[in-house]
Design a protein around this nucleic acid. Structure first.
Lengths: 214, 214, 214, 214
DNA sequence: GATGAATGAGACTTCATTCAT
DNA sequence: TATGAATGAAGTCTCATTCAT
């Protein structure tokens, strides 16, 4: 079932096999329900070897988070060319994001669902990655405002909230796209882009929606 | 620590105490890490009584989900007046949503994070609630189009995606607002409303963002 | 499911209802697997009432054994007329035995299987009944020998062994008859009578089977 | 109390130790009253190891039944030589049976008492063994009839009943012999042989006992 | 580098039994 | 007479983790 069993592999390779198995197991079973037994068997090694290399269940989980977070941000970075206009950058980023999460549902589950839930240590790891993405989006908004020669006069917190909403919508759409047959990464990206860019545009043109008095 | 210990209470009251303790524990520890021991102690009763009334850990969790889902949808229903224009309805709904989730962070955690992760049975309970909300939002979008005397010609799936994105953004913002000191429910609602309503408006005026060719 | 619920019954009646429920439950589930909850529900009363009347699970079980043992020996006593020849007495006894056990399988299960297994206290209760039956059979053998004007010169232990074998065969046949559709009490009795009486006859005529040298 | 504690034994050996402990505990306490804790302690290992090797209480019990059933039928097979006349074969079989059960009272208790009571799965395991023995006895009766150049004209069900009665008597005598000090296997076998063979002989000579009209 | 053997701790669950009315 | 409310104790089972080879 698991990886092909071949003895005496270099450590780096073995470790990746273990992380593959761990991400898959954590993603499908959840952190607590995943057992080290299952991970070891799926990796095709004995349990003591997992402990020898990865130390403990917590450390193993942290290693999974780090690897998956790095892979996701790398995918986005590769997809985006910073010499493009802001809207194109956002589009490329969204497309890369939805494509990567669709291809690595277990990794995405680990980042999006599992890591948030089990202790601040894990959540912190993910928060770092998330902040990197939020910062990227925030900067795009600012650049967009400058390109439009507007001074949207958006307070910092407001921008943070917008970026948060955008990223949250993306995360939610990623889950929805993964769960809804027939929805491609491209369609998900288009839906969100439509939704977001237009909204941002209006905002920056100074036509915000005014809440009624309390 | 737990509720004041007073013996011999009628069953209905004890059950609510147990559900209170369970929601709090599940929300903070997660479904698997929450132990029946801890829940019982927090409720101020013995473990067998929890089993006598709520049957099993799964059933207890399901009961939590049902209660919290009902409370959330009720809060939104109470907050929204259907004789108002669509934008006002959306605003009221968002405000009620963010207010309720801010006041019941553990309940929201149970619905948003825990229930999704542990088995289709639980996820199904939440999905039902979520679909109710998504349907409400979807209908608002359609009504808004009609109010604007426009035929936005939005495909059904596109609307579904928009509603999904909106709800997802709301869910994400709720978590963000809960975790960020100083962010009020009103602010979160305003941020999202600004973001969403403007975007929807543009969409319906037929100015969508056009993705580049693949 | 259980007995018709009617409040305020005289104690003797309630006790019989409880014993009915207990015999049925013990017979079908076994002593340990039977729960006081199930017995109380089947009897249509609350658990504390069972404890008020019958004291404890052990006492309840003992009461079951006593009642069923008394019923079985009474059935045999009623079936046998001591003014008949020995073979007729044995036949009548066997017929009564197989008839009663067929009509009260749960009671028979309690006596035959459950009581033997759970502690010497219970086994002792059954042993008393069993000895009464063995004594009856033993006496029949002696009477038969006298009727045949023979002195079979059977040692006491040998007679005890014979009676034991006969009773054991009867018990086994009762279980077999209960479990094999289409086997009546009369057939079971005939089979055993054929087997036993002829063997006894040969024995008493001094034609034992000779075991080979060690 | 338990086996001598020596760490790091090969799995096969440990499994036998566990089965030894389990047979003893199940035989003396009964299936339900036997606790895995007690079995593990008697085996000189920790409870998790028992579960690792034997999987569950049910599986452990089944393994006990299988081992003991195999041991008993093997003992009988070894004791009987099929080139002997039927009466000698029956004698040898009985002797082997009583000898084995006397030497393995706990194993016999597991087969005779415990297994029958707890679920059809277990009873089925024993029933298979019992049928093997009943078939052996049945065949002996048929062979005996042929050797006597008689046509006993015994209906199939009648023979089945006889074999059942014989085996039942043997089972009962085995329990009796185990419980009665001073009764040897040889004596038990002789008692039953006397009883049975003579009875069978008479039967086959066409002198059955005639039951009275209903 | 790799593993079969082994375990302490703790999870969920059930039961016989009692208390207070 | 009768019961709804409540629990201490014990059961089966799983898991992360380590030892000795």
């Amino acid at each position: 079932m698991g990886a092909v069993k071949s003895k005496r592999m270099p450590r780096a390779v073995r470790e990746q096999q273990m992380l593959d198995a761990a991400v898959r197991t954590f993603g499908q079973r959840g952190y607590m329900a995943a057992s080290m037994d299952e991970i070891a068997e799926l990796a095709g090694v004995s349990k003591p070897l997992v402990y020898l290399y990865l130390n403990s269940k917590e450390d193993l989980f942290t290693a999974c988070i780090r690897r998956e977070a790095a892979a996701l941000t790398a995918a986005i970075r590769v997809g985006v060319r910073t010499d493009q206009p802001a809207d194109r950058q956002l589009w490329d980023g969204l497309l890369a994001f939805f494509t990567h999460t669709a291809q690595n549902p277990d990794g995405w589950s680990v980042l999006h669902l599992q890591a948030r839930i089990h202790g601040e240590a894990f959540a912190g790891e993910v928060a770092a990655m998330r902040e990197e993405i939020v910062a990227f989006v925030t900067q795009l908004i600012v650049v967009a405002a400058r390109e439009a020669h507007r001074d949207p006069d958006l307070a910092e917190r407001e921008v943070a909230g917008l970026a948060e909403a955008l990223v949250g919508a993306a995360e939610s759409l990623a889950a929805w796209a993964n769960a809804t047959p027939g929805v491609t990464a491209r369609q998900a990206a288009a839906t969100l882009m439509n939704f977001a860019w237009a909204g941002l545009g209006n905002l920056m043109e100074g036509r915000p929606w005014a809440p009624p008095a309390a």
